[in-house]
Amino acid sequence: MTNAAAEPLVTLDDVSAGYQDVLVLHDVNLTVRQTDFTGVVGPSGAGKTTLLRLLLGMLDPVAGSRITRPDLRVAYVPQLETVDWNFPVTVMECVLMARTEHRVWPWPSRAERRDALSVLDRLGIKDLAERHIRELSGGQQQRMFLARALLREPHLLLLDEPTSGVDVNTRHDVLHLLGDLHQDGMGIVLTTHDLNGMAAHLPHLVCVNGHVVAEGSPREVIVPSVLEETFGARLEVLEHLGMPVVVDSAHPLRSAG
């Protein structure tokens, strides 16, 4: 990695933020670099999506400051559940939405189509370019949005629950794909509530519950005390193949005997 890659892309300094009169996050200090591959974990309503919106610049802090690198190019992959899959667009039309700047004509140029097909090819869905978005499987939908994000050639990629509602194989595929993109030099931040399936595989985690409870490697963060403060429940942590594994012991199973 170059020195430029290690420079902060976004810095949140004592930031508080929320919607209307409700404060969702307070006193957040966080720095995101191009070298980061970070998972934001926390229960529902903890402020994970709010943190993403702060990093994206879609939400302004009510206190504290957000500093972004002047030339920062950021791309965002939304939750699949928030999308209208009946919307009348093909995969290609959806991917080309990423190229809105400096456009005069409505139709794509040859270079734009070539770039879009190249990204779709890399993600293994080039053959689906002219399909309607409703015809895609969950994993293909996720890849399509990744393709749209990659077409922006971002320094930082933000994903909201990228494995929510997809099967185990798709989750592995997405994780490996993100790993490859990170290897190529892209900063990645994603939210997840999937501690074992997703978070334990990421090199850096941020635990959130109205504020940043802890951040660090999975080994540093996936410990009972941090999990209890984050999720409000006692969770047992075991080790399996060198990975921390979280066991929900808040409601122990009744003994068979």
Binding site: L56, G57, M58, V74, A75, Y76, V77, P78, T82, V83, D84, F87, V89, E93, C94, L96, M97, A98, R99, T100, R103, P106, R148, R152, L158
Partner: peptide
């Protein structure tokens, strides 16, 4: 055309883009 399409389909991502 494309901005209208993007903001109609997904205003949040359009804003982020």
């Amino acid at each position: 055309y494309r901005e209208l399409l993007f903001t109609t389909f997904d205003p949040d991502v359009a804003r982020a883009s």
